[in-house]
């Protein structure tokens, strides 16, 4: 076991600056994850050349792999840095910001495009109001519930977008995660009343048809969300919607 933990971090001072690499080393201790190591480094921000530098900036919150904040490329793989154990990683551990989103600073990126996509795709179940109307949602088949649950664990972390060859700053594609949310809400017994709107929102430019079925999304999703099932299911739904729009207007 090495007595040090070595890092090679891709840094960038601001959105318009050019990136550069900086290397750090810290004393080894068992059970470190990437975030806890970064926390150590922000308290002792000294690079391997012995220079005291500005602490590395990154994004984190829950530290339990449910909030999605701390996603970055770790040795080239997009994942949550809080769940990336140092003991499992080859060193030097190479940290890079996600490449598909604008860098804010160092390892922090701006993923607002993902949240905009959730808005664009109308990923919600419209209700009359947040008051009690004294009835529950209709009875739901537990199997449907279980399938919906898989999708509702999506934490908008961006791993699927990172791995998607169709999603990048120059493409209009909404990416896999928002498509999963359309599928989720279309499967709800009352959410389906608004499926036309949601389907229409993904039948234009940047919508479902821009998916290339490389299926990397489902491989890298930290929550094992069956994104390709959603994409296939939406293929069927949009096909039916097309016929509906042609013949039943």
């Amino acid at each position: 076991m090495s007595s040090e933990i070595k890092f090679k971090i891709k840094r960038q001072d601001g959105p318009n600056n050019s990136p550069y690499w900086e290397e750090f080393a810290m004393p080894y201790a068992p059970s470190h994850n990437v975030v806890s190591a970064l926390m150590y480094l922000r308290e002792h921000p000294i690079n391997t050349r012995g220079e005291r530098v500005r602490p590395v900036v990154w994004d984190c919150n829950c530290m339990e792999e449910v909030c999605g904040a701390c996603t970055m490329l770790i040795n080239g793989v997009p994942k949550q840095s809080c769940a990336a154990l140092v003991d499992d990683l080859a060193q030097p551990i190479v940290l890079e910001p996600l490449t598909k989103f604008p860098v804010v600073r160092d390892l922090q990126v701006d993923r607002s495009r993902m949240f905009d996509a959730l808005r664009m795709t109308k990923a919600w179940v419209p209700i009359d109001g947040t008051y009690d109307i004294h009835v529950h949602a209709p009875i739901i088949d537990p199997k449907v519930q279980q399938e919906r649950y898989e999708f509702s664990r999506c934490m908008t972390c961006g791993c699927c977008m990172e791995a998607c060859p169709q999603y990048h700053p120059d493409s209009a594609f909404v990416g896999p995660a928002p498509l999963g949310q359309v599928y989720l809400h279309n499967a709800h017994p009352t959410g389906r009343f608004f499926r036309d709107d949601r389907l229409h929102s993904i039948m234009g430019e940047g919508g479902l048809t821009d998916c290339g079925n490389a299926q990397n999304c489902v491989q890298v999703c930290p929550k094992n969300i069956p994104l390709t099932t959603a994409i296939g299911g939406l293929g069927r739904q949009t096909t039916m919607q097309m016929f509906k729009d042609i013949f039943m207007k």
Partner: peptide, 12 residues
């Protein structure tokens, strides 16, 4: 997939 015939991983 795109026309919605094979939607599930097994079908695919």
């Amino acid at each position: 997939i795109t026309w919605g015939v094979t939607t599930h991983p097994r079908a695919q």
